[in-house]
Structures are given as structure tokens and as C-alpha cells.
Amino acid sequence: MNPPTTLSPEICREIDHWIAQYPPEGRRSATLAALRIVQEHGGGWIRPESILAIAEYLGLPPVAVEEVARFYSMYELKPTARHSVSVCTNVSCMLCGSGTILDHLEKRLGIRPGQATADGRIYLKPEEECLAACAGAPMMMVDHVYHEHLTPERVDEILESLE
């Protein structure tokens, strides 16, 4: 087989680290980690040819990797933006006013969930489920950082702090 050309040696090294955590017949278990690593190195999203490359590297059918990539909402399969914003809209946050927060974000950024701003600065994730911070509802996650007890003003502050 050809060595997959779209995985850099650095990415392969990182994936190897995860493969080593599982028994030899369990290479498949490294799929989640491999997808995350490729996304981190790929500007926040996973290209179709990278899915193929991961499949080849782990010895899996390509569709088995695609299946995982499309199941978890953490993986982006389309270009996003420099910053990713997820507003929890699950029960606790909804009862505490996440609707207002999402409305405010949409209005201020001029985009709908699933879209990115034209300047490539902010990407609004579609329909995020519970992020396990119900005590701080309503909440949102910006690039893996939690922001709780949100108000529209607080949201503005956070957005302004992003480059």
C-alpha cells in the first residue's frame, strides 16, 4: 500500500502514541484520537482525503472512519473559522434563557448556527447539546473554554476579547 500522503510524519507520530494505548488488534480504538489530531493540525476541520488517510493508516474501511467523524459533534467536516462558539440549548440552559443568548449572538454576528462570519473569525456551532455545566446555565463554550451565567452584555465582552 502507498503510505498515506496527507498525514504528516508529525501527525503519524501523535496517532502512534494513541495506537500504543490499545492492544495490537485494537488499532480501531485510535480512530477518535486520530480524527481529533487531524482536525487540530488541519485548521479546525477534517478534509475528506484525511478521512481516507486515517482509514488507511489504521487499516479500517474508510466509511467506518467517516461514520465516527459524522457521529460526534466535535468533529468539523467543513471549513469553520478561527474561533468556535457553542451555545448549549439543552433543558437547563433553555429554562435559564439560552434562547436569548443564541438570538443575541445570531443578531450580533449576522450568522445562523452552522455558519461562520465572513471575516473567518467566528463559527457558530449548530445545536449544541448539554455540555454538563447546568449549574452555570445559560452557558457557552468558546474554543474549549466554558463561559457560564451568560447575559447578552457578557457575551459581547467575550466576543470582543477574541481576535
Binding site: L52, P61, A64
Partner: peptide
Amino acid sequence: LEEVAGAQELAIVGRGERSAVRSFL
């Protein structure tokens, strides 16, 4: 396709209400 034909070529992709049986890409 996985068990009899020997290569998984279809999968249930997506989740919940948005699941769909699809081939790779």
C-alpha cells in the same frame, strides 16, 4: 457488505434523526 462481501462499504452515518445509510463520501 461487511460480513458477507468482506468490506464495509456502507454505514449508518450521522446520529439521531439525522442518521442515514451512506457509502464513503
